[in-house]
Simulated scan of single mutants.
Amino acid sequence: MSVTAPAGFEAAGVAAGLKSTGKPDVAVVVNRGPRKVGAAVFTSNRAKANPIIWSQQVIQDRVVEAVVLNSGGANCFTGAFGFQTTHQTAEKAAELLDISAGDVLVCSTGLIGTGDETFRSRVLAGTEQAIAELSADGGDSAAQAIMTTDTVAKTAVISRDGWTIGGMAKGAGMLAPGLATMLVVITTDADLEALEADTALRAATGRTFDRLDSDGCMSTNDQVTLLANAASGVKPDLADFSAALRELCQELAVKLQGDAEGASHDITIRVTNAATEQDAVEVGRSVARNNLFKAAIFGNDPNWGRVLAAIGTTNAQFDPYDVDVWMNGVRVCTQGGPDRPREDVDLAPRATDVLIDLKVGDAEATILTNDLTHDYVHENSAYSS
């Protein structure tokens, strides 16, 4: 049920003809209250799609009653026509739901630089159709409607003492921190103040989605939204809610990693004993974005030299000649030199664990990434064809 698992939410996903496949491509999520709290984080890419520009204005008062999402077109770099399309989408939803357009977030995903009257008319018609089909069982269809190159819908639900969090996510490529790194809608029937929702969301995304770095490419359309309505009547301890929200975001982030375009290895890079958490993140990300390392993992080659070469480009505090590296539980490098034979490392499984011990402090961080494959290159070379 994903976003409709918490009480007081309805959703739907419909096929409006934006995709040539005929699959669902417009989704609507509605908060029926009693409260209409909203929080969101957006891509930090300076090149922002029209829905991002719109939604950043809408979220200022932290009141959100509905989210309209479409796949099959990013509505980015489409000029004034594109922004008008986004505005009209919000107005259409507002008219049909009898709410303010200023309380409707809009999200789009797909090819950049395309959009015409046909696109606009199909988004508007899809919005109308989805609102007509809204139900408390519509979370799964909504999750399917936001997919692009995704091979599976990505949903998660966590329930605690009388309250629930549900979420749906889309993303299989252009996964790099921004923040955030995909389209995600999260709902909860917990009773939260607006500032509490915003604080919890930023803390959760900062340790989950922001540490998913599949291919180092930041999108123009990334948005993570949290809607809270107090329908459960339960006001949770903020620390308990924040922990549950982070758990749900992590579950969705791992699902995004597992469906990354063309990937054959899901790589978890854990950096330990760093001077600061920032250093640990910088070191982990340097490896996650190193194409030589990613290509080696694709070839099942435990080439630890590429790990050291990658981390040597950072400003993190450590001695490159006193670093240990493990791959899938085997220490292949110690004190900047070889340890166990490479033949001892089995990189055949999809799950690949890399541990980097910097030996200078007690901070740590984990970065999620994938290998670089022929399939990834092929899929992205043919994306707009």
Rank of each mutant, 00 (worst) to 15 (best):
A143D: 00
T127R: 08
T151A: 03
D240Q: 10
A172G: 12
S219W: 00
T225M: 13
R122I: 09
A194W: 08
S135E: 10
I131Y: 06
Q223P: 01
G126A: 08
E193N: 14
E133I: 03
D213C: 07
I131M: 13
V123H: 05
A244S: 15
A132K: 04
W163G: 06
E117G: 15
D161V: 11
S159F: 05
D116I: 08
G171H: 07
G138H: 01
A169N: 00
E196C: 06
D210P: 04
S242L: 09
A130E: 03
G113F: 12
E128R: 13
T199M: 13
A176R: 01
S159M: 03
T109Y: 00
F119E: 13
D215C: 02
I146E: 00
D222V: 14
V104F: 00
V224G: 04
T155H: 01
A203I: 14
F241Y: 14
K170S: 09
L195V: 09
C217G: 06
E133G: 07
R211F: 06
T109P: 08
A130V: 10
G167M: 12
S108K: 04
A132P: 10
T225E: 00
Q129Y: 00
A136M: 12
A143G: 00
D140W: 07
L175S: 03
G233Y: 10
V157C: 07
V224S: 15
D140K: 04
L179G: 07
A197Y: 05
A230D: 12
M168Q: 14
R207L: 12
L124D: 11
A231L: 15
A125K: 05
A169F: 00
A143Q: 10
T109Q: 07
A136D: 13
N221V: 11
L192E: 02
D140P: 07
C217H: 02
K154C: 01
R122V: 10
V185K: 01
S121M: 13
V184A: 12
A203E: 08
A156K: 00
S219H: 13
T155Y: 04
D150N: 08
